[in-house]
Amino acid sequence: MTTQTLGNVANPALAARWRRATSEPDWLRWTLIGISLSFLALFLILPLLVVLYGAFEQGLAVWTAAITEPDALAAIRLSLFVVAIVVPINVVFGVAAAWAIAKFEFRGKSILITLIDMPFAISPVVVGLIFVILFGTQGWLGPWLAAHDLRIIFAVPGIVIVIAFGTMPFIARELIPLMQQQGKEEEEASLTLGAGGWKTFWYVTLPNIKWGLIYGIILCNARALGEFGAVAVVSGRIRGETNTMPLHIEVLYNEYMFTAAFAVSSLLMGLALVTVAIKSVVEWQTERSRRSADTP
């Protein structure tokens, strides 16, 4: 950026002085890059490598065996089952909240946005605790649930609920700023031309928020699969029944089955890498559409 404006200066001595004034000398530049990259290598790259190394150290056959062993498969199946319920709920919630917040003016809007953000600020173990106190044997609804032979804590419903709570903000947070920025002119045009509300949503709003929604879904998906603290409190860690993938990793690790723990971890790590890759693609897409909108 800087070099572009400085390129216009004809006098080389003056240009050099200006460059010194608005940028750093090469040695400093590369020192700063070096420090940053060392920090990121230590904190971002090394953990990735150690998971890969741990997972594949003993060969592909051991890796395959670790992730196809019955308890691992049960954990994968449970995690996918939970995601299949939680993500659609969060899509509906995120779209509804973003529609109400971005298309209308009302009192208390900022309070509503703060409320939606709040589950993200609460410690995951507190989330688990909240529902243990609501549904646990000594909790508010415990006696009633026991009388009706319903199990929520130490069972799958509890896991679904805490994960839905923990991942509540992710899609809404992606969509609210996006839809606020896009305004409501296009929807108004569609509606005044005679299209109905649903038709307007499907053909006007949805294509506009497509990329943000896709990233929101992927992020929500990754966070739902990875949720640990809240699930640790409500699941009871019953093998093959209430162990999600992260809990299964914990059990394996605590039983010193490191290769198996890293094998299951490598699956979740792959998903996390896909998530950040999709985020870059989405940012690139929105950047491109913004640029094409800027140049008529």
């Binding site: 990259l37 790259i45 990875g226 890498l273």
Partner: peptide, 23 residues
């Protein structure tokens, strides 16, 4: 590198935990 900065946000905490203790 820019994309990877988000990794701690997307990586399950249990995976980060066992990776860090092993390192």
């Amino acid at each position: 590198i820019d994309a990877l900065v988000d990794l701690p946000f997307a990586l399950p905490t249990a995976v980060a935990g066992i990776a860090l203790v092993t390192l």
